[in-house]
Design a protein around this nucleic acid. Structure first.
Lengths: 349, 349
DNA sequence: CTGAAAGCGCTTACAG
DNA sequence: CTGAAAGCGCTTACAG
């Protein structure tokens, strides 16, 4: 089956009527509609997207931009596929398809995005891994393409974003550790310009202040957001004079590398050092001792993200009246053994 | 900047000339071309893809279909992102963009693919996770869409595929283990209909035969292709009477789960049981004792896959004269400690 | 309820 | 070397 013209000829009616029948418009005779639908099914006709897009000015495709660096490849976790799952559960209600747009490492993300926008492959976009200063946001605002940022940024005007509650992780991590007697609490924060690093360290500093603990810059260990980064964090932690008694991590895979480095040094998490991990992930499930970490549903996050995006799109906003606002996604603390001990006086600094 | 019409008005020339200049056609005055290019750059004009696609009958987009199940989400590894990287390195030479098409778990892959094909979002497709019987192949053959399957299948006619050398893994694994004195060698094979399971078990059986060892169906442990599957494989292995002295795995993450189950039973890989893992992966690097496994470059595989696909596309075939043939991708054995011991007579069955 | 026609934004023979 | 025009496959006012 080629195009709508062939289908119309086959049915011996006009292409306008075929189109109306296929698109569920009213004002089509029931019997006619039935015949058209049956013939389309039988002949495997589906409208050519370029033709539709050109006429309608929209593609019915949503893009999720991904940045694929060596580091993200080697530290693939379940985050994006999990979120994708939730996104699609929302988009499928509206016959929208999701495509993932992987920006290669050797291409400038800004240029890549510009090209995708200009080509009008998608009606709307989801950004991720937002940086403190992120030119992509201004680009999309200027191009007037609906988008949602998964992650906050200091760039841009009044765009819509969703983000994880990094502040909550910092605050609850510190509260919990202080309650167990810790005063020297380190954090492993990202060394990159990714925005969450700023949010996390700020919140950590504020939490310390609340407890009357002085902020010590030496306890902010800057490493890559990866398993290797966790290993490195462990390494640097061991070299701090007046060694911290606890550490909070801000990437899911850091715990694995950290445990490894600690094991090499004969240090047992939950006995010699309190460890609070970040997001619970299949790979961290089997750490021994079990890791205190934070739980969230990737699928639910994806679904909410999808609804938020649709709420910013004129064609779908009516379905999501509450939708177009910024949201912080909560994480639930799941206690493990990695920070289970209470510091006695002798150990305290 | 809206469309080519506005750009042409701005330059006070016809849209035809603008188009020719932009697309690098000959027969355009150098000065005219220069002006057009400069104006397009300045005004940020890029051709609307729907308009181009409709006229040219191609989209300049290649799709990589992914099946996203709960299991694949939870067992995300570096495979697809790594391959994507290599694919893009080839596609970018021809100004082709790659999009990943994630088929949701709750949608029939065949229907999903049908929709993508019918909508003509992409010019060509890459399939992955091919099954023994895979209707997607016939669908694409019938639709006359260029495609390459990453993975063999018993379905379809004379399509082009690329696949990993599962037979080589089985053969070299068995050879190596037999040389170390093993006779009872188990394999952990996928429980699904994925085609590689058939190839692997057949090759395993042939390798045993070559060494005059009887094939024992009880030693083919069917589990999920995942970390959990590896754990399960360990569990089942322990229950086999006349326990195997070695096991070969056919999924990268199985080793992690297997090690865990063995540790629970107090069994040490490389001392009490010989373990040959599958593909070397960042997550398996840190297993102790180090894992004997197979190495390959995902990026090189992706690049080869990209060239093979382009060779099947009339518009690009000329660039890749050697391209459109089936290829088995080799893996290099990397010895580790997990199978380093030689079985002494006492231990032999 | 249906048909005829316009037009979305491009590229490309064709004429000059 | 450039312009005018056709037409890719659709959807949608508009007329009847």
């Amino acid at each position: 089956m080629k195009g709508i013209r062939q289908l119309a000829e086959h049915l011996d009616i006009s292409i306008g009527t075929v189109s109306r029948a296929l698109n569920g418009k009213p004002d089509v005779n029931d019997e006619t509609r039935r015949r058209v639908l049956a013939a389309a099914e039988e002949l495997g006709y589906v409208a050519n997207q370029s033709g539709r897009s050109l006429r309608q000015g929209m593609t019915n495709v949503i893009g999720l931009m991904l940045e694929v660096s060596r580091e993200t490849i080697e530290n693939s976790d379940d985050f994006f596929l999990g979120v994708t799952d939730g996104l699609q559960s929302v988009f499928s209600r509206h016959k929208l398809d999701l495509v993932m747009l992987p920006c290669p490492d050797d291409e400038d993300p800004h240029e890549y995005l510009k090209r995708m926008v200009a080509r009008r492959l998608v009606d709307a976009l989801i950004l991720s891994a937002t940086r403190r200063t992120d030119r992509r946001i201004e680009l999309l605002e200027k191009a007037r393409i609906p988008f949602v940022a998964l992650g906050r940024s200091a760039s841009g005007g009044s765009y819509t974003w969703m983000d994880l509650d990094f502040e909550g992780v910092a605050a609850r991590g510190v509260d919990r550790l202080v309650a167990k007697g810790h005063r020297r609490i380190a954090v492993a924060a990202p060394s990159s310009d990714i925005n969450l690093g700023y949010l996390f360290v700020d919140a950590y500093r504020q939490a310390l202040q609340r407890h009357g603990i002085a902020f010590d810059p030496a306890l902010v260990i800057r490493v890559k957001s990866s398993e290797q980064g966790g290993y490195q964090a462990g390494h640097e932690l061991l070299m701090i004079e007046e060694r911290p008694t606890a550490i909070i991590l801000i990437h899911e895979l850091m715990a694995i590398g950290l445990y490894r480095r600690l094991a090499e040094a004969g240090i047992v998490p939950g006995r010699d050092l309190a460890v609070v991990g970040f997001r619970e992930e299949p790979r961290t499930h089997f750490l021994q001792p079990t890791l205190t970490s934070f739980r969230m549903s990737l699928r639910d996050l994806g679904a909410q993200l999808g609804e938020t995006l649709l709420a910013t799109m004129p064609a779908y906003a009516d379905h999501y009246p509450q939708g177009a606002r910024n949201r912080i996604w909560p994480l639930e603390l799941v206690p493990g053994e990695s920070d289970a001990f209470t510091l006695n006086q002798k150990n305290r600094a």
